[in-house]
Design a protein around this nucleic acid. Structure first.
Lengths: 208, 208
DNA sequence: GTTAGCATGTAAGGAGTTACATGATTTT
DNA sequence: AAAATCATGTAACTCCTTACATGCTAAC
């Protein structure tokens, strides 16, 4: 899967933002996030943590008590983000470009969208949408020119694939609209900006 | 991505069933099939072909003329399946088990479903559905117990993920029903079995 | 007490991508 | 003539998974 190294790093940084965590817990959270398929093995998590330690993006502490768990006797290695780590996280999150809208990368970035500006969010969402649209166009054009006798099942697989991507595109469009609407709302509300973050990320009636 | 080696092999074997092809063309077809994301590079295709040659699953021939292309002057290496290759393909296709319903593997198998018995098809479809259902259950139970303050975006990502998998499950259910219906049809039609393969793989009204 | 799950790692190896190399053929 | 794309490879390198190794702790 290749370009995951950076992805893991970003995910760890993002999760540790919520508070200190130890490896085992990190893995569980990670799998829940990007787990729609492959699971992350210890064999890649721990080495990645070590690497991040060396780079001073995170720090480790031995603790007997982690908030949440009921005072376990057993000391665990707990990781926290450092200053440098926070900066690196922000840098990675504001990076707009191809790497930001690739499948796995996109999901991680999206999950931590709260930590970014709307400007960045919009650019990532739109980039992702364009990417998917390109895929659709490519497949559909190739499909049009190949159009020899297609196998029943192969055709159904294609159809289903196209449908899924189209749905994904609509989802992104809804999200983009919601973001834009949020912007307008805020502009309309002018000076006052109390935590009123009503930007619904949910379904908006904006079909195709 | 790991378990792809076998996947490529299966895909190549299946495609060559349609007739001889050269590497370049193989790659294009492959990418169109399993290409919903990553593309297969020459760096993995050609070595795979070499390996299959050594195993005598395929044979190569130099040709100046491939059916379809307009008598190009340039000789290309064209691959064909051997007897052993055909047997291997059939063996792989009738293999029911975990490897058959993993993401990539499933897609390839599905694309070549025409080359298998309905019995196998049903088992693969059901296996796949069970697998997805398990994923859903796992995520939903973990979601239920973690239920601390979830981030807006993270939550939306989860929701969307669950929705996608649920949709996938419904798709599989429709297909399973269609297969079963096909069985009944055939049983009802009794002796006569002229190419009347009306088994629609398309949408059936069988929501959830 | 014993199973299941928590917790932390390491080593070896497989799989595939990137980048490099090369050249013919077709299209603009 | 240049650019695109067809066509076939190889080598190095990255990433990640598998399998191994170890031991604590909670629940049954």
């Amino acid at each position: 899967m290749a370009r995951r190294a950076e992805t893991i790093e970003l995910a760890v940084l993002g999760l540790l933002h919520e508070g200190p965590m130890h490896g085992y817990e990190l893995r569980k959270r990670l799998n829940l996030m990007l787990g729609w398929g492959r699971v992350l093995s210890y064999g890649s998590l721990y080495p990645a943590l070590k690497k991040m330690l060396r780079a001073s993006l995170i720090e480790e502490t031995m603790t007997t008590k982690t908030p949440g768990t009921p005072v376990s006797k057993r000391p665990r290695i707990t990781y926290q983000v450092t200053e440098a780590g926070t900066r690196e996280f922000e840098r990675l999150m504001s990076e707009v470009g191809p790497t930001a809208w690739e499948d796995d990368n996109f999901d991680i970035r999206f999950a931590f969208f709260s930590s970014t500006d709307m400007e960045i969010r919009l650019r990532v969402l739109e980039g992702r949408r364009t990417r998917l649209q390109e895929r659709l166009d490519r497949v559909q054009s190739q499909l049009a020119m190949t159009q020899k006798e297609v196998d029943r099942y192969a055709a159904e697989l294609q159809r289903h694939g196209v449908e899924s991507v189209e749905r994904e595109v609509r989802w992104l469009s809804d999200l983009i609209n919601a973001e834009r609407k949020g912007e307008l709302d805020r502009a309309g509300a002018d000076i006052q900006d109390p935590g009123a973050d009503t930007t619904s990320t949910g379904r908006q009636a904006t079909q195709k």
